[in-house]
C-alpha cells in the first residue's frame, strides 16, 4: 500500500465522515431552524403548565417562533414562570395571550401565542401578562361530573 493510496483513502474517509456529521446536523437535527438563531427572551406566568417541558416549541398561528427555555415555580405566588426564547424577527404586541396547548390528544405540549392589537411591542425580558393555563383533563372530568350531579334533580 503506497503513500498516495493511503492519503486518498484517508481523505475519502474524513470527507464522508464530516459529510455524515453535516447530514446529522442539518437533516436530522435542526441546526438551521432554531437554537443558534439570535433571539430575545419573554416571560409568562401560568397557574398550571402540566406537561410543558424545556425545549418545547412556542408557536404563533401554528408556526414555530421560538422554544421554551426554562420553567420554574415562583415560590411566592405558586405560579409557573416560563421563560421563552423567541427568534429575532418575530415581534409580539404587549397584549399577546400565551396559552399552554396540546397538539392532538396525546401530542406534545407547546405554548401558543395570540397577538393582540396593541401598538407597543414586547421587548427582551418582557412579560406576557395575559395567559391561559393548561387544560387538565382530570379537572375537566371532575367538573363535568359535578355539573351532571347538580343538574340531575331538575330532570
Amino acid at each position: 500500500m503506497n503513500r498516495a493510496t493511503i492519503d486518498l483513502w484517508v481523505g475519502v474517509f474524513v470527507l464522508i465522515g464530516i459529510g455524515a456529521l453535516i447530514f446529522l446536523s442539518l437533516r436530522v437535527g435542526n441546526l438551521l431552524t432554531t437554537s443558534n438563531a439570535p433571539g430575545y427572551r419573554l416571560e409568562a406566568r401560568f397557574d398550571n403548565v402540566a406537561g410543558l417541558k424545556p425545549r418545547a416549541p412556542v408557536k404563533a398561528a401554528g408556526v414555530v417562533v421560538g422554544r421554551v427555555e426554562r420553567i420554574v415555580l415562583d415560590p411566592q405566588t405558586y405560579e409557573a414562570s416560563v421563560t421563552m426564547r423567541i427568534d429575532q424577527g418575530f415581534q409580539f404586541t404587549r397584549d399577546t395571550i400565551a396559552s399552554v396547548l396540546t397538539s392532538g390528544l396525546l401530542g406534545e405540549v407547546y405554548i401558543g401565542l395570540d397577538a393582540g392589537g396593541d401598538s407597543q411591542m414586547l421587548a427582551d425580558g418582557g412579560r406576557i401578562a395575559k395567559t391561559q393555563s393548561a387544560l387538565v383533563i382530570e379537572k375537566l372530568i371532575g367538573q363535568f361530573m359535578l355539573d351532571r350531579a347538580s343538574a340531575a334533580p331538575d330532570k
Binding site: L24, R27, V28, L31, T33, S35, R55, V64
Partner: peptide, 19 residues
C-alpha cells in the same frame, strides 16, 4: 418522517452531545 425528526432532534442537546 423528516419533519418530526427535525423538530425533536436538537443540535446542541443531541447531536453535539452524541459527538
Amino acid at each position: 418522517f423528516w419533519g418530526n425528526m427535525q423538530a425533536a432532534v436538537d443540535f446542541r442537546e443531541d447531536i453535539v452531545n452524541g459527538f
